[in-house]
Design a protein around this nucleic acid. Structure first.
Length: 565
DNA sequence: ATGACATGGCCTCAAGCATA
DNA sequence: TATGCTTGAGGCCATGTCAT
């Protein structure tokens, strides 16, 4: 430490500043392309902007001093600056430059406002940040995006984070990105200094950037995980800092591929080494595959941790192959009796939670697919079906492709840890208890086929028929969301699917009543089409299907010959 | 040094699954 | 439809890392 006082003596500070500048100079010399990089990219694919584009769509915009003067002059007339005044000033300033491509604006207040006025504005901003930023969100008519405001060195900054749903920026926002060494940190500060037009030394720019990011992220719940967003002592950046950096430099996350050595949670353990940052269509397909894996076999926890059980090592390899697109991920299957247990890094689960998957118990929560799944590309929808059949589905010549899903309709109040709302009453439960088959085994339960419930509706016993009626109504009124969504995916690809309830089960021990649904391809053609456009991603099941298809084709050829004859 | 925490690994339980 | 066992679900704890 610094003489145990926590205060850095001036001499040491000078030395350190000097050393930092030297590191950057050395580094810049050994990487001559770096300084000029931002201005000399000539590729015009969607990731890299050409020179002209960079100039016409600057993402950081300095507000014209004339406009600042006009806007801010009204503030000087107000004695007690309110948060409303502050918000409306920020709104007008940012609107003056607002365009689709402008994420960040700044206004130099110094020439227009006195010291006292600026610090008053700062005070109001710090005290009413929440209110101001939320009001800006309404003023700019933004949903799920919170504008950020900061005042650093007499500059008023406004940042409206860009929506980046086709990248991993958002799910990784609370993760930490590790870089190879601290030169990368200086490189980033250097980039920001250029983009924000900060005319200070690198060291002072570092302080400026830190103050800026601290304020820009002050409104986040949970506060800031780090005292300084960027520090020469650390080689990591929090996701929200990276997000700001990308917005300020108008880059996509893939730009950092190769520079980032690890993405992990706050404590730096585990995580994904040498991460890759797939985006766009590629990412969409990968997410669809992961959705299929989690929806069938995986267990997604709040933390993002995914537990996965699988009997066949080849299938684990297949999952491994999917995961490799996100970086160096090596699954370590642990042998359990009868199968392997695998844990997948939290980051992957976080991606899927961000995508809209529900962590926790699937039977109780009855989650469907993430919203917007019907807008997935055809490739992604096919990918989903390919990857879930090996898990939960089966193929048979008589029924084609079929699969099951079940969910709870009732949980005894005192055994309900999920604040689950039962959709039937104790009356219907009693019906299943009385009329259901008593099944003993590892878990005792009462089994009642759906056909039997259906019949009981016309029972002579009035109580019974009434209970059966309301059970049937509940079954149809509260269907299984996942299987319904999966049916829609299959139908969107041109297959007809038949969906029907199969049975209800009552588990006395847990006080739960569940209903099981079955989906299957309706006609032979549907199974054929399925086999053709999304053959199961599993060797054994695919072989089964392929031999069936071969038979069908031979069959068809035989008939054709006969007709031709 | 200490506290907070994410993580991996372990375990157990019960329910959903395949299959006959 | 009946049975058996695989596998979701999730609790718990040691360990390691970071921030303070």
């Amino acid at each position: 430490g610094f003489c145990g006082t926590g205060i850095e003596p001036t001499q040491i500070r000078r030395l350190r500043e000097f050393e930092e500048e030297r590191i950057v100079r050395d580094w810049a010399q050994s990487n001559p392309e770096v300084n000029t990089e931002a201005h000399h990219e000539t590729t015009v694919d969607e990731n890299h902007k050409s020179i002209e584009e960079l100039e016409t769509h600057k993402t950081v915009h300095q507000i014209d001093s004339q406009i600042v003067r006009e806007t801010v002059s009204q503030l000087t007339e107000v004695k007690d600056l309110s948060s409303v005044n502050a918000a409306s000033t920020v709104e007008r300033l940012h609107r003056s430059v607002s365009s689709e491509h402008c994420a960040i604006s700044y206004a130099d207040l110094k020439p227009e406002l006195g010291k006292g006025e600026i610090s008053q504005l700062e005070r109001v901003l710090h005290e009413h940040r929440d209110e101001i930023e939320k009001s800006l969100s309404e003023r700019f008519e933004l949903e799920n995006v919170r504008p950020r405001v900061a005042i650093v060195n007499d500059r008023l900054y406004t940042w409206i984070p860009k929506s980046r749903t086709d990248e991993l920026v958002e799910p990784y926002e609370k993760q930490f990105y590790y870089f190879r060494d601290n030169r990368e940190m200086f490189h980033i500060v250097e980039d920001l200094r250029n983009q924000l037009g900060i005319e200070d030394s690198l060291h002072k720019s570092m302080t400026h950037v830190n103050k800026l990011i601290k304020q820009l992220t002050a409104g986040d719940e949970g506060g800031h995980a780090r005292v300084r967003a960027i520090s020469e002592k650390s080689t990591r950046l929090e996701g929200k800092t990276v997000r700001f950096y990308l917005d300020a430099t108008d880059r996509r996350l893939s730009y950092l591929e190769g520079r980032v050595t690890k993405v992990t949670g706050i404590n730096g353990q585990a995580g994904i080494e040498n991460p890759r940052f797939p985006e766009g269509r590629e990412l969409e397909v990968l997410r669809a595959r992961l959705a299929a894996i989690i929806a069938s076999d995986g267990h997604l926890r709040e933390s993002g941790r995914i537990g996965y059980n699988e009997e066949h090592l080849e299938r684990i390899d297949r999952v491994q192959e999917i995961l490799r697109n996100f970086g160096d991920i090596t699954l370590k299957p642990k042998l359990r009796p009868g199968s392997y247990e695998v844990h997948i890094q939290n980051q992957i689960g976080l991606i899927m939670i961000h995508e809209g998957m529900t962590p926790g118990n699937k039977t109780i929560q009855n989650p469907g697919l993430p919203k917007g799944y019907l807008e997935w590309s055809e490739e992604a929808r096919r990918a989903y079906l390919e990857d879930f059949i090996p898990e939960d589905g089966s193929f048979s010549v008589s029924r084609g492709f079929s699969w099951f899903r079940s969910h709870a309709l009732y949980i005894e109040a005192e055994k309900n840890s999920y604040s689950f709302e039962s959709v039937i009453t104790a009356e219907e439960v009693k019906l299943v208890k009385n009329r259901g088959e008593s099944v003993t085994g590892l878990v005792d339960h009462h089994y009642l086929a759906y056909g039997a419930v259906d019949k009981l509706q016309t029972s002579d016993n009035q109580n019974q028929s009434r209970s059966a009626e309301s059970l049937v109504r509940a079954i149809w009124d509260y269907p299984n969301n996942l299987i319904e969504d999966e049916k829609k995916i299959a139908e969107s690809l041109g297959m007809k699917i038949t969906l029907s309830p199969q049975c209800v089960k009552l588990f006395p021990k847990s006080g739960r009543l569940t209903v099981k649904w079955v989906a299957s391809t309706t006609r032979k053609e549907d199974a054929e089409r399925w086999a053709e456009i999304c053959p199961p991603n599993d060797e054994r099941k695919r072989n089964e299907v392929e031999s069936w298809i071969r038979e069908r084709v031979e069959d068809w050829l035989d008939k054709k010959e006969w007709v031709d004859w």
